[in-house]
């Protein structure tokens, strides 16, 4: 399926090699390498200040790294020419932490911005229809489309931001702490939405999170950032088998155990229902 539809794409949409980032004397990343597989949800975790957001900003070209190479969808970000740069921006969507909606535009108009920018030939009526169904696809109620961001709650802002990120049907979706600041019910709903969209649209998702429930629920693999690099990538059971103190403390702390038990319980419950 994806071969016929996206012929020129490599199997690894994001490849980071030997990345180095620093602010003045403060080195954030040193020799960081990471590969993301097509069609997976990769969770990125790490303590505060380990440079998760900086890594994302480097990959999407907002932060120019000191050294190393970043390849996204087969194009080099680190030495991109102007034209390639624009071409590739139409193929990814980014959800920033606070939603980063344009405050002077309604939710629907926010979704229209990338459409207008990249595909001006799309007629106004179709553009309105697209904006409308994208907003609803992101789990917002029908009447949210003509509201201003200031009229929305935090969770709705994130959904609206997601709608804008999905405006161009990207292959790659970057989510920066999508469930931070949401109540547990809202967070669980957002996780479900992310998974559903990922499956329906065949997305590759790069997801920064602190939320252990999100990791257990929807991430195919988890990358752990510590000591200025990615120290491990793998499924959670694989990571648990490792002996790194931070990983052990993270997943085996009280919160980590609670999240694991919750997921275990849910599976158990589901099995019982089937039986």
């Amino acid at each position: 399926m994806s071969e016929t539809f996206l012929p020129d794409d490599p199997q690894h949409p994001i490849v980071v090699e030997n990345l180095r980032n620093s602010f003045g004397d403060h080195v954030i990343h040193e020799g960081l390498s990471l590969t993301v597989n097509r069609g997976e949800i990769l969770g990125v975790v790490g303590g505060s200040g380990t440079g998760k957001s900086v890594l994302m900003r480097s990959i999407i070209g907002l932060q120019v790294p000191d050294d190393g190479s970043i390849t996204v969808l087969g194009r080099s970000i680190t030495d991109a020419e102007g034209d390639e740069d624009i071409d590739i921006r139409a193929r990814w969507g980014v959800l920033f932490q606070g939603g980063a909606l344009f405050s002077t535009l309604t939710v629907g108009e926010n979704v229209e911005v990338p459409l207008k920018e990249f595909y001006p030939e799309i007629a106004e009526q179709l553009r309105h229809e697209i904006a409308q169904f994208k907003v609803m696809l992101s789990g917002l109620p029908r009447d949210a489309v003509n509201k201003y961001p200031a009229e929305l709650s935090g969770g709705m802002k994130k959904r609206a931001g997601l709608a804008r990120a999905l405006a161009l049907d990207p292959e790659l979706l970057f989510l920066d702490e999508p469930t931070a600041g949401l109540d547990p019910i809202g967070a669980a709903a957002f996780d479900k939405l992310t998974r559903a969209l990922q499956e329906t649209l065949g997305l590759t998702v790069f997801l920064i999170t602190h939320d252990l429930d999100t990791l257990y629920e929807i991430c195919d693999r988890v990358a752990v950032l510590a000591d200025k690099k990615v120290i491990a990538v793998g499924t959670i059971p694989e990571l648990l088998a490792l002996d790194h103190p931070w990983i052990q403390e993270y997943f085996n702390g009280p919160r980590g155990r609670a999240a694991r038990d919750a997921q275990h319980g849910a599976r158990h419950g589901a099995n019982q229902k089937v039986l």
Partner: peptide, 24 residues
């Protein structure tokens, strides 16, 4: 005939709306 196409069409058919985009 395509399973994925079918899924996408299902997804958008559940999400249609007719509201104006601009603020009232």
């Amino acid at each position: 005939e395509n399973e994925e196409t079918r899924r996408l069409i299902d997804a958008v058919s559940r999400s249609h709306g007719d509201r104006s985009i601009a603020a009232p």
